[in-house]
Design a protein around this nucleic acid. Structure first.
Length: 401
DNA sequence: TCTGGGGTCCTAGGACCC
DNA sequence: TCTGGGGTCCTAGGACCC
């Protein structure tokens, strides 16, 4: 049997949250719509007024960006809204200045998760080796799938695209390439509803002209550092000697930057993984002070602990590193954590240890955010089989180094 | 009137062990 | 009495991603 060349696809749903919303509000198609913020009250009011006939709600009845007051950000904008220069991660207040009449819809994660499960099921029915990369994107290994090599993967990509659209009404963009790194870049080439095929021989023509920032893993900080050295495009990066990159960015990062620029990436498509941590955090409607707002903060803190505990219990995990996160009004972040001997998923234990963490952090400035995290997770079932902490310590009496 | 929430991985120093 | 070398775990911060 001849070894097949690796063909890896990256599939990205187009404006996913907004597209799901358009399925229930088709009257908003083509309009600037943004998803973000909290509070579902306008939506509840709409539902009360129009019952289940969501598609009959007149466009004029929808809330507008200019009417929003609060601290949210945009999670997704329709392509019509992007024309106005608004996009993901932009503060809603700022977006309201750019496009005041855009329709603003609150986030409905439960609904997006339902569609997420559906489109992923359709994919694994066709190509079983799929890696989950969040609610709206996946990697798929085409290598061993029947037909996965035809036209570089285009035939299979088209089949998956069509199957998802027929089952959900949602469109996606797909990139197929020799590895995950290039596939991820390729899926952006033909958005929305596009397919793009990249081969190893396309590196210089299709990849090197792109900005370094297009590499998944090069963020704003690394990009700044690269630019300071006159490195703007991936081609610029590829032209630097590996040793030079290692000297500038360290052994691991430098080597990775060099490999990335040359399109080298051997990471497998990983179908299963265990969570490492679970957390809950909240940004307050106004900044709070540890003393003046002690009672309110205490209630929020306890609730966060209860939520994390409930998440652990529902998903069947226990953890032994419990921590807190604060964001001050100047946006600086402080974290403290503590590892306890016994794995837990108990709200009271989490609350007590997190409370001790809170005592180790400065509380003089106003707080903007409070979070609680449990890490060092283990499936609850496997933790039950674990010996109690301290067991086996006497064994060291019989060993010597 | 800036800037959400839920994650992963990496680094670096110190403790501790053999 | 001037000085080892691994290894692992813990902790805090930071970069990055969706």
């Amino acid at each position: 049997m001849i070894a097949q060349p690796r063909r890896i696809a990256h599939l990205d749903m187009d404006a996913f949250y907004a597209s799901v919303e358009l399925l229930r509000y088709p009257q908003l198609a083509g309009l600037p719509v943004v998803i973000g913020g909290g509070r579902r009250q306008q939506d509840d009011a709409l539902a009360a007024a129009y019952g289940q006939r969501l598609a009959d709600i007149p466009v004029a009845a929808f809330p507008r960006l200019k009417d929003y007051v609060g601290r949210g950000v945009i999670t997704t904008a329709t392509y019509a809204a992007r024309q106005f220069g608004v996009g993901s991660a932009m503060g809603l207040m700022k977006a309201a200045r750019a496009c005041p009449d855009a329709v603003l819809l609150p986030v409905d994660f439960a609904e997006y998760r339902r569609y997420s499960r559906r489109f992923k099921e359709i994919i694994t029915d066709i190509a079983p080796v799929m890696e989950d990369r969040g609610v709206d994107e996946v990697y798929i290994d085409f290598t061993q799938v029947p037909g996965g090599q035809r036209e570089g993967g285009r035939v299979l990509a088209r089949l998956i695209q069509k199957s998802i659209f027929e089952a959900t009404g949602l469109t996606c963009s797909v990139g197929v390439a020799p590895n995950k790194l290039i596939a991820k870049m390729a899926s952006e080439f033909n958005k929305p509803n596009g397919i793009s095929i990249v081969h190893e021989s396309d590196l210089q023509t299709m990849i090197w002209p792109l900005a370094c920032r297009k590499i998944n893993g090069i963020g704003p900080k690394t990009n700044e550092r690269l630019q300071a050295h006159g490195i703007v495009t991936i081609g610029d990066l590829a032209a630097r000697p590996r040793d030079w990159l290692v000297a500038q960015f360290g052994k691991s990062s430098g080597a990775w930057l060099h490999d990335a620029a040359w399109g080298r990436d051997e990471r497998p498509v990983v179908t299963e993984s265990e969570p490492v941590s679970m957390s809950r955090e909240t940004t307050f409607e106004r900044d709070l002070h540890a003393v003046q707002d002690k009672a309110l903060l205490g209630r929020i803190f306890t609730e966060l602990c209860e939520q994390v505990a409930a998440d652990l219990q529902r998903k069947g995990y226990v953890g032994k590193t419990i921590g807190i996160k604060l964001r001050y009004d100047d946006f600086r972040v402080a974290t403290r954590d503590q590892t306890v001997p016994e794995f837990t998923q108990d709200a009271a234990v989490i609350r007590r240890v997190a409370g001790q963490c809170l005592k180790r952090v400065p509380l003089d400035k106003r707080l903007r955010l409070l979070g609680v995290r449990v890490g060092n997770l283990l499936p609850a079932a496997s933790a039950e089989a674990l010996p109690p902490p301290g067991w086996g310590e006497s064994a060291s009496l019989f060993q010597d180094g």
